[in-house]
């Protein structure tokens, strides 16, 4: 039964996803392309590209796409395929969601415990380093272009500086320094400069 197989596979992918999307790519590829043959390697590359260019975490993007494609290719029809997409997306978040609920319930019951307070105090400072590392790891040629006096790199640096300064400097929050406004502006700028 394809639905059951989809459900179990994405249940497994969901619980083994640690540390965000990119860590799980090889796991998804192994399950979806090599074991189950639900996608061809080309389709998998497509979905990676799409995940970077559409909203949503890569784990959920893949689940939705595979759920639709696999059931459609197996001849379940349009409605059955939409059902497959929802089922796979549901499966991929189910176990982490339940686990998270248990942990959050436990922690809110023990919030005043001094040891919990101390541990989180240490974690808060560390998380800043985690975010910094995420930003540093994105300082690549893929994000900015090849360093040098060329259009792509200069425009990228200008966009980076604009977004960074507008996000960091004003203490007040206006509509023009909202992340949404800044993303829309950067996308529009890309459209104007590169097309």
């Amino acid at each position: 039964m394809l639905y059951l197989k989809l459900f179990l596979t994405f249940l497994k992918i969901g619980i083994f996803t640690f540390g965000g999307g990119y860590a799980m790519i090889s796991l998804i590829e192994n399950e979806v392309v090599e074991k189950q043959h639900w996608l061809t390697p080309e389709q998998f590359t497509d979905i990676l590209a799409v995940s970077q260019t559409t909203p949503g975490p890569i784990g959920i993007n893949t689940a939705t796409y595979v759920g639709y494609t696999a059931t459609l290719d197996a001849g379940y029809g349009g409605f059955g395929a939409v059902l497959g997409a929802f089922l796979a997306s549901f499966a991929v978040i189910l176990l982490p969601f339940l686990l998270m609920l248990v942990v959050v319930r436990f922690l809110s019951a023990h919030r005043d415990n001094p040891m919990v307070t101390v541990v989180f105090k240490a974690l808060r400072v560390t998380v800043l380093g985690l975010i910094a590392a995420a930003a540093l790891s994105l300082l690549t040629e893929e994000s900015f272009g090849v360093p040098g006096w060329n259009k792509r790199f200069v425009v990228s640096c200008a966009i980076f500086a604009m977004v960074f300064i507008l996000s960091v400097l004003p203490k007040k929050k206006y509509f023009f320094n909202s992340p949404i406004t800044l993303l829309l502006a950067a996308g529009l700028l890309g459209l104007l400069v590169y097309v």
Partner: peptide, 9 residues
């Protein structure tokens, strides 16, 4: 191409 550096910032 425009969005990527903005996301890093």
């Amino acid at each position: 191409l425009g969005l990527r550096p903005a996301v890093v910032a």
